[in-house]
Computed example of a mutant assay.
Amino acid sequence: MGTGLSTVAIWGLAPLVTSGALPDRRPEIIGHRGAEGLAPPNTLAAIQQALEVGVDGVELDVRQTSDGELLLFHDPVLDWNSTAQGWVQNTPWSEIQGAQIDGESLVTLPDALEMLVDADVSLYLELKDVGYTDAVLETVAEYELLERLTVIAFETAALDPAQRRGVSTGLIGSAPTAQLATDAADYGADGAFCHYAPHLASEFVDDVRAQGQTAGIWKLVDTKETVRDALEVGPDVFVTNRPDYAFDELEQR
């Protein structure tokens, strides 16, 4: 089997043959990076689209600029996906402000919280690095949203300040493995989150639940068929670029 085909099989870019049935328990539907499939990621437009679809929550990526501003952005290098230049951690906000991603302005965490403070949704913040978790917590606390917050990260060091303050946390892994479920439980995270992968995700959800934790799955590429595949696995939390597809599928069950 060629590498291209195996990659498709592993990460679920092509749908499986589905059972035609969805679990009775409805997952929490979270808009990935706001709703990346409907508007540029990590922008106010993406958040607005997610809210209009009716999501239960939004997931956003947070990085810190050289002068301490909390920027919503996924990649470490601004050039990769915006009109700004340089490494986020080496660039002050004054040089980023006004930059765009696909026509939408790059924004800060406070900008997003202003939009979300009156919305009845949960908030998942993925911290892309360590060293600024306390700043994120203080910012969210200013908007009195800590009770709605789950801090998620690939590194437990980024979760430690949230753990100490009793804020919900989730450990992320790239693949749905039993080891990720064990690591999250051993650390004391409230949940474990991973990419969706056919044949593996269902067992991962069972492993995480067996540890008494929340099982989260998110999709890298969303079509109606693959969204349904992921929903059939029955995660507690489903993070998707196309929350509208998820709701369409759930309404048909």
Rank of each mutant, 00 (worst) to 15 (best):
Q89W: 11
T226Q: 09
Q85M: 03
T7W: 07
F238W: 04
P235F: 02
T177P: 04
L200H: 14
V58F: 00
H32S: 13
Q100A: 11
A184M: 07
E232S: 13
D120N: 12
A178L: 12
D24L: 00
E114S: 10
I47D: 00
D183N: 14
L72M: 12
A230S: 11
L70T: 01
P176E: 03
V140H: 04
L123E: 03
V17N: 14
W218M: 10
E232G: 12
A189H: 07
D236R: 07
A35P: 00
P76C: 12
V55M: 06
P243L: 11
R253K: 13
V237D: 00
Q89M: 07
Q49W: 00
P92Y: 14
T156S: 14
N42M: 00
A210C: 07
T169F: 14
A112G: 06
F204P: 05
P41K: 08
L231M: 07
K224A: 09
E147L: 09
T3R: 13
A46R: 05
L146Q: 08
D186T: 12
V136H: 11
T156F: 05
Q213C: 00
W87L: 13
V77D: 05
A181T: 08
M1G: 12
G98D: 10
D61C: 04
A21V: 15
R33E: 10
R242P: 02
D160H: 14
P110W: 07
